[in-house]
Structures are given as structure tokens and as C-alpha cells.
Design a protein around this nucleic acid. Sequence first.
DNA 1: AAAAAAAATGAAAGCACTTTCATTATAATT
DNA 2: AATTATAATGAAAGTGCTTTCATTTTTTTT
Lengths: 334, 334
Amino acid sequence: MPPNKPPTIYDVARHAGVSITTVSRMINTPDKVNGDTRVRILAAIDALGFVPKAEARARAMRGTGRIGVISPFFTAPSFVQRLRGIAEALSAKKFELVIYTVDSAERLKSLLSSVPLTGNLDGLIILSLPVDDADARRLVDHGLPTVLVEFPHPNLSSVEIDDVMGGRMAAQYLLKKGHRRIAFLGDTDLPEYSLHPVSQRLVGFRQGLQEAGIELPDAFVRLAPYSQEQTRKVAAELLSMPQPPTAIFVATDFQALGVLKAARQLKIQVPEQLAVVGFDDLDLAEYADLTTIHQHLDESGRLAVEILLSQIESPSRPTRHVKLPLTLIERQTA
Amino acid sequence: MPPNKPPTIYDVARHAGVSITTVSRMINTPDKVNGDTRVRILAAIDALGFVPKAEARARAMRGTGRIGVISPFFTAPSFVQRLRGIAEALSAKKFELVIYTVDSAERLKSLLSSVPLTGNLDGLIILSLPVDDADARRLVDHGLPTVLVEFPHPNLSSVEIDDVMGGRMAAQYLLKKGHRRIAFLGDTDLPEYSLHPVSQRLVGFRQGLQEAGIELPDAFVRLAPYSQEQTRKVAAELLSMPQPPTAIFVATDFQALGVLKAARQLKIQVPEQLAVVGFDDLDLAEYADLTTIHQHLDESGRLAVEILLSQIESPSRPTRHVKLPLTLIERQTA
DNA sequence: AAAAAAAATGAAAGCACTTTCATTATAATT
DNA sequence: AATTATAATGAAAGTGCTTTCATTTTTTTT
């Protein structure tokens, strides 16, 4: 027997000198087994540390609960911060954290179909990923308590922010600072269906400008793939226009860093010649002295766990949709 | 089908017009099933209300399908990058990723005593955490294939770097750049036992300087808690000395950012007045244009998974100790 | 268009047991 | 002592799935 392979009923039978049938009887209906034989089989069970596999597995699962997190791949620091909140909230509890990373819509679909069926989880958190009606129904039907973060669905609990308001806040701040040639930069990597938070931030931003009678020209709305290098390039184009903007609202801090890099390379003074506002308030926003719309990334993870655990305890409780507040953090860049 | 008999995989297969193999794949590795077929099978599962029987699954499965990772808490971006490598390597496999975060030596001890006993992991990766002889013996005795990353133990496979050499490389680079008043800044958060990589980087750094006849004065060796704010303060003290260093080797990129911040606040030009070299080459090193010793953080995670999976497949294979190379990435700060 | 490679799917073996039917051993009855 | 009944045990079939190896289909390459 390989050292790491647990003993089976065959091993016990061999050890005790009986058939597996008799061992099975010993376990299930011992009164049908002769006394002396019973003793011999029990000794073998003890000696080998035998536990029927299904029971061993059930027993192993019983000790701790298991929370799954379906998360976009670790490329975005905001996901890491939410995950940190989740891990922190779970670390004091008797729960394991199981991570399923997603790098495509296909993969998300895959997970959402298999995770409710394999029966390994007590609860599930889905981070910043869209869930459709069929997916939501399956999760509910299989009784897997689920909390969504950032992308809500009416049938499942969620932790959200008001992205429209966030965009509006950025617009109002830049207007208050006296800016009139104002641009927006967001990312292109949006899911095919589902309103993306970045799109909502643009909606709010546009509304905020319109409320002050300021247009947001199409030339001042730029999208870049979610990488600093690509963002830098797009920002460089924007900043090299004949009449470039004097302020940019960047839909995520991560890409705001790309904008700052472009400014640095074009020797444009921030904030004197260019004001930059980001969104998220990532850990590294402080390093970059970035003015940004702060959302409680870590707290969103913690709160998701709190809601989930209460649903695991009382499955009949109604779903909850919680909106976390936004605040504007004024640093150096705007 | 008898009305009170729950549907089985055979019923689902018949209903969807596929084999039970394909249904099983849909449940366990859905990415290996064609999209249209997946939809059909899911519809059949939903229509029949099929739930796989736990006992039958337990019987049929050749393992737990789960890989555990014991990791320091997500405060350090380097752990996140290693974890990213792990997640990437596992995402194409049939394993779930279970995270156990560690925020104290007590917690580490607790995990290392309980995790091998639960029998619900196929393998374990331990990230940047010390493992003593008793821990290593327990892991081996219970047959839990284990790979260590960063902190090696002779009895377990590991993925490492040569931290001493890394320190030496930084020293040689700064000397080549003409620096003679050279300092070191590392972090104070070291485990109570086990030689920490940062200590080894200092050893190598010191050696590299000594080989050129340069002393590293005690006043030029500073330690700060692993936060940018604390690091900034310690760096500010260092930089405010009567004869401050003209170059600093910072043992981690994360803290190097704190040093750069201190320089900025003291209006010290980098690299003209102060050269800064970091270690790790974190994602954000590029943003900060940080010259740094590059280690393959993502790759260390991927390689750990590769070694682990080969040990799960063939437990009798001998342990492997792999050292990943280091390269110096020359950017703006030095 | 043909050949090669990759993806999707299926047949059959296997898992770790339980259960049914058969065989053997022992005890009770005549 | 022989026969019958009961108890103990085993062989083989069955469970509801997973997995391995093979086959078919589709896609890509030449």
C-alpha cells in the first residue's frame, strides 16, 4: 500500500483473514458476524486506521465550512483588496477559503454551472462578475447561499456602490477646481453583457458635467485595455491634442497611474497643467499621491462574508442589497 | 424512472442525448465540454433536479481535487504575485485552490498540525513561511505532498532564490555606478526562527561591498516595519544625516516605494542625489521606474504547482530544490 | 483539397463499498 | 448417527459515479 493511500475494506479483509463481505457486515450488521471474527476484524480496522472513504470524506468536510470565491484573475489590485477583506473576515472563523479564478466569460459560465453541483461549498461570493438569470436560479435551486460584490442581481444578496454617483462626484470636484476642458479615460475590457461599473462612472461623470452646462466631447472620452502601458499610450494621445484637457477622470486608480506616467513622460506638471482623479483608492494611490474616489474595497469583502454567514445560518432570510458609501480623497494630483 | 427515485447521471445523459462520461465532465471539468453540449446538459440537470450522490462521487474520485496554499496574509504584493502564478497553473487543472492565510506564528503552527490530518487535500504549497523539522516530518508521515516557496527545508521540495547573491548583485551595481556612501534598508517583521530572505540579502549586500573594500556602517543599516509610512519615516531619518548615503538598497520593492516617497518629500533628486535599488520587481516597480533585483514571483508559483503535481502523481519521486535566477532590472531610480 | 492537430465525445474499466444469492459450518432435532 | 435447521461466511453482481484510453469530429495547417 502506497504510504499516502488510506487503507480500504480490501486491506482490512486481507489483514483479518476474512472477505470484504464479512468486514462490511461487521461494520453494518455486526450481530450477523461471529464474536471471534468480529474481534479479529476490529483489531484489523484499528491497526490499519481504516475509515470507510465516504465517511472519511464526509467527516473531513464536517469539521470546517467552506466558502468559495469566484474572482477575476489577480491582475487587478482592486480584486486583491476585496479578497483581502474576505480572507480577513474568514480567518477568525471555521471556514476555508476556496478560490476560483476567472479569465474568460467561458470560464465564468463553466464555474457557475459546476460549482453548485459538486456540493463542496457552504457559501459562495462572486466578485465583480456578471451573473445572469439562469445562473442565479441554479444557485438558489441548489441552495448555495451566494453574495455578489459589485455586479448585482435581484435574486441574490449583494454589496455594491453607486458608480453613477461616483462619476458625478469626480465631475463636481473638477468643476469646483475650475476645470472646463475635462476628459474621461476608462477600460475597454468590459463583459459582453451586463452594465459595467466603469460605464456607470462615465454616465455619472457626464451627468455631473452636463449639470454645469459642460459637454464631454467624444474626443475626450478614451478607452484603453486594462494595463498601464496601454493606458499610458492612450493618455499620451489624449494629452498631445492641440487643445488637450486640463483634467482627466480615470475610471480606475490602476489606469490613473498610467495617465500619471504619460504626464511625466510628456513633462506635463500634475496638478498644475493636468489634474488627475482616479477611482478606488487602491493601496498604491497613496504612494502616487492620487486624488481619488474612495470605495471601501476591503470592507466590501468583509461585509460580503458577514452577509453570507448570516444566510448560511438562516437560509430563509431575505436577500440583502447593501450599498457602501463613496468619499473623495483629496491628495496631490487634483 | 420510479417517481420517488432521485435521478442519476444515467437519466441526465439520456435526457441530454450524451454519454454519462460527458455529463461527468460537464460537472467536473466543464471547459472540456463543447458550449452547446454544456447548455443541453445543464438544461437536463435543471429539468430533472439532478444532484450527484455524494457517496458515489466519493467512491469514484481518485483524490480530493484540492490543493492547499498556506500563505502570509495578503498584505505583501509579492505573495499576491506568487499566488497569481499558482492560480494560473492550477486553473487549467482539475484542482480547487484552498487558501489558508497566516497572520501569526501561532496560526501557522495550528495549520501545520491540523492540515495534514484532515485528509482533504491532495497537495500543499507553503509560501514564504518557515517549516521546522517536526512540521516537515508530520507532512511526510501523513503523505501530504508539499512544496515550499522561499523558505526551504531539506526534507521537502522547494522553489527558492539565492538571496545572498541578490544582495551581492545590488552592491556590485551600486559600486559600478560609482557610489561609495551606500545604505541598506530592510524590514523588521521577521519570524522568530528561520533565516529570513531579507537577512540573507543584507549578508550578500555586505559581502559585495566588502569585496570592494567598502564598509557598511551600522548607522547605514536601518530596519522598518513593513509599511510604506513607517519605511518613509526611517528613510527620512537616514536621508537627514549630516553625511547621508548617496545610494540605498531596499530589501523589498514595497519598502523601496516608501524610500522614494521620503526622497520626494525631502526634495532629494532620484537618481542624481540618491540612487534607489529595490528587490522583487513587483508589478508596481515599473510604475515607479524602480531599478530592482528581479525575481520570478509569478513563475515561482507556477513552478511550485508543477513540482507538486508531479509529486502527487508519483509520490516516490525524490524531493526537488529549484533555485530561480535573479536579474537586475535597470530603470530610472539608480 | 488533403493532412495533421486539437477538441469533443464515448466505451469500458475502476472505485470502495453494499447486497443478493450461494456455500459451508455448526447446532438442534429426530 | 442421520437429517434438518440455523448461523456464518464468501462470490459475484450491483451502485452511481470518475477516469483512462480510444474513437470521432472539428479545426487548423500545409
